[in-house]
Nucleic acid binder design. Sequence first.
RNA 1: GGGCCUGUAGCUCAGGUGGUUAGAGCGCUACACUGAUAAUGUAGAGGUCCGUGGUUCGAGUCCACGCAGGCCCA
Length: 1128
Amino acid sequence: MKKYREFKQVSYPEIGEDILEFWKKDKIFEESVKNRGGAPSYTFYEGPPSANGTPGIHHVMARAIKDVFCRYKTLKGFQVKRKGGWDTHGLPVELQVEKELGITKEDIGKSISVADYNRKCRETVMRYKDEWDELTEKIGYWVDLDDPYITFEPKYVETLWHLLKKLYEKDLLYKGYTIQPFSPAAGTGLSSHELNQPGCYRDVKDTSVTAQFKVKDSENTFLLAWTTTPWTLPSNSALAIGEKLNYVKVKTFNPYTFEPQMVILAEARMAVYFNQKAEGISLSDYKSGDKLIPYEVVENIKGSDLLGMEYEPLFPVAGIIQPFPAYTVIPGDYVTTEDGTGIVHLAKAFGADDFRTLTQQNVPGVFVKDEKGEDIPIVDKQGKFLPVLGKYLLKKMGEHQITAHKTFSEHDFYVKNYLQEDESDPSYKSTDVIISIILKNENKAFKVEKYEHSYPHCWRTDMPVLYYPLESWFIRTTAYKDKLVAHNRTINWKPEATGTGRFGNWLENLVDWNLSRSRFWGTPLPIWRTKDGTQTICIGSIAELEREIEKSIAHGFMEKSPYEGLEIDLHRPYVDEVILVSENGEKMFREADLIDVWFDSGAMPYAQWHYPFENEDVFKENYPADFIAEGVDQTRGWFFTLHTLAVLLYDSVAFKNVIANGLVLDKNGNKMSKRLGNAVDPFATLKSHGPDALRWYMLSNANPWDNLKFNIEGVEEVQRRFFGTLQNTYNFFALYANLDAFTYEEAKVIPLVERPELDRWISSKLQSLILEVEQAMENYDATPAARAISNFTVDQLSNWYIRLSRKRFWRGDMNPDKQAAYETLYECLLTLSQLMSPIAPFYADWLYKNLVQNALEAGHKLPQSVHLTDWQEAASHKINRDLEASMQLAQNISSLVHSLRKKEKLKVRQPLQKILIPVLNQNTRKQIQHVEALIKAEVNVKEISYIDDTSGILVKSVKPNFPLLGKKYGPKMKEVAKAIQTWGKKEIALVEKEGSYPITLSGEQAHIALEEVIIQSQDIPGWSVASEQGVTVALDVTVTEHLKHEGIARDLVNRIQNIRKEMGMEVQDKITISIGCQDQAVKDAVNNFTTYIKTETQALKLELNGKLKEGILLDMDDFELTVKVEKA
RNA sequence: GGGCCUGUAGCUCAGGUGGUUAGAGCGCUACACUGAUAAUGUAGAGGUCCGUGGUUCGAGUCCACGCAGGCCCA
């Protein structure tokens, strides 16, 4: 009976399916968690995917990475619980539902009820769950799919509310402003998604102004700043400059008032603002009204020197003037000299950058108080100036006698044409134009012109969008910036740069987290407020909500709870129906906002366990995570929200190690997209190539944080090269083990020290491999681990160990040498199955099972799956670096000899007498002697001679040891190198003898020590020589008569073996041979090597017959002969 | 526009702390092996290390400025 299964050919997809079946049937995953009960836990958090789309090939990548380290840590003895999860809320789901229902956001609550709409969202979001589960299983991603967390479930949302309340109690949750796209015509804010609709950005011609801001306490010096939205100038409260840019102060005249003045702008922008033709015209020659305005640079100023400079506001309107540090020059990292003046006008209310910069610099913006005492911008939500400015503009129109298409009132100054007045009327004047005229007349404008640019428009009204401060709820993340940064420093990021760079910079430039979303399908903000906003309650649990509802009912604000007789659902619209009662008896309504879905996922460490309402012990054991992994695009998404909530709420990191993987692109480096048809279907790939090669390819081809150019040919290469070789290796083992009825029995193995050199060598390499893989995996580097395993398998085990050991396996009956070979090979394969199991879990388990099957059947207590085994620690006593070095020399020397043979056109079958190896030290000699027999057999030479100094024919060369000498001599290195390179035989001999040798350096004496030079042997006069990595080999290319005969004999054996095979003979069949040939050399060869030929070919009779006509004609390069082989 | 990543052979990738022949696999060419055989081995050809400057005795490696591709954010 065969003890080890043999395979003619294997189907990797089938292995995947069979092993998956086995895992399911025997509950291997569950067992791998269960049998680590009581062991230290290793915590992994699953970043929840959204199942409203089908999974792609990049999900295989992300999921493989997660799986690899969880499996590895399980082998290492940790208990690794892996709870799956689903991300269910958010805009993508809503948009998909809108599309499917053919509705827009405006229809929700009108043509479809919020309840129905949300029901539809809930159905849609899990639409592809089955496909996801199937992929998860098929790629071998072990995660608990039976009990996942789902972010829309009431328990999950309850934890979110609890966390929000904690934030609220810490005064970290507040209502504030953020600058968002806003459509005054539609009276609504727009999402960035709505702004990205086709046709929203349109080229329009606007009046642009380069305004002059008068420097405080100067006579006539102005800062120039350019804007395409002059209506924002009354809201100016600071100017931004680039600290590294160069600025100039220019003496010139105002082109509208012709008054003499100094202006400051970026040097690089001068050409735009001054006519080169005016260069050289004397300032004193200028007369008012001259078109050509002379100018003269009077001072160069560094950007940083402008900081803090104060200037006078353009619109000195009582009530809008702000206190210091308003109207000062501040730094802006985004200031360029691409356009404008290199000085940027900032209006806090109307630009996101402006808002951020001014907030960071603590500069007030231009706001006025409304009746509630809250700050409002000076443009209202209809898009017109408040009367406070309207009055001022009206007064100025009178002062400057500006007439327009109509008579203005203080309520008529719309900043864009929202009244849709006829712009073709020649007397039509926009607010921008009116402002420009005022500025021109008041010596406050340097240049006014039409400017065409791209500007966003509302997709529903076609009217221009304003950037406008809108109310939102925020988490005060900036209050914890230092802690966020400090905790981040303790996280091990792969790659490091994502942590320090992308994520670190993001934390350094932190703004408060805007939580608000004006949508329907998401976690509602659990905040109720009185109409005037003076009283607020934040609800932190379902119980609390129910209590408050009771109170409200008692107070008569609600008739009954919306949940009466129903399951609790914290979504809209039900929560919106809840009206609560404030402490002093007023009605409180829920703030209509939903929260950012990233809060949902960032809260999963707590919410997945419904903590703190349940599972306190599980939570505490599994917090924070040891490891998470997601795409690098999550840096400001999941990674950020996880980190932030942990720091703000628990003063802890949420994860200790994180891999941020890159994208999966197509083979040409383009982004995959279903639309372009270059997306790779993961299911098709699994079907054709199986899961293991796919996972192996994805992880071994490039580091996971580099983008992967996915090429199916790469998967095939992995399959051929690594899995194919491993499979051949196993088959080789199984074939002969079965012939010899060998089974591995641990109790009876031959101790390593008693095994042959080659076995000890591969065992040493194997132990070294374990260490290497372990080190890489501990460092979260799966790629070098995979590459090391593959290199060991292909180069060392298959190509060297097996090739050199082949005869041991087939020759003779069972003997200790043979047994040692089997045992060594078996041990290598078994260890490999474990080492590779995290990355190629199916094939590894299959290999493992093939190896241990008969031991299991014989009743040995062994884990039934490699994934249930304990990590086999490297046995350091088996590592023999010296032996590894020896073998490396053998490999190098063999390669060199092959190279020489090739050059000399001497094939390996032709025996040669000897090779010469120059040795400069005895250790190398010893190391080579150790493997001499191997080398001789491998390259078919009869002897190896070593030549050293005593031989007298050794030619040495010397070169400087640059790293050593460079440090010592630095700038004189060239001279030193030159001196050393002039050394000849005599000098080399002296430096070897004395340990140092003097040289002259620019007249001075210096001593070069022996270790500061590298002495090599390169030439052996009269020999064919090759050298590599410090090893030199010379080949004796003389083919003597005798060698020639032996070569012919070997050739003959080779041909006869082929004939035997062609004739379909069995290994043990005996034959008779007749050879017909006139060539004397052949005759001699046959006569001299009769025994050898007969033994090798199992011939009973070998005869030379010069007249032989029948038989097979063989072309032996130099001659022909006829051979007749017959079964004896 | 900003932050970050990537750029080395036809392709995919290695190349601590700067050091004098820049490597591997695949592909290609040639050869060998023919008892692992729908397998295997060996050798060879193949390089403007993205570009330009700089630092240095010495730069694929360090610095600056660019170029190209990508991600995230405006």
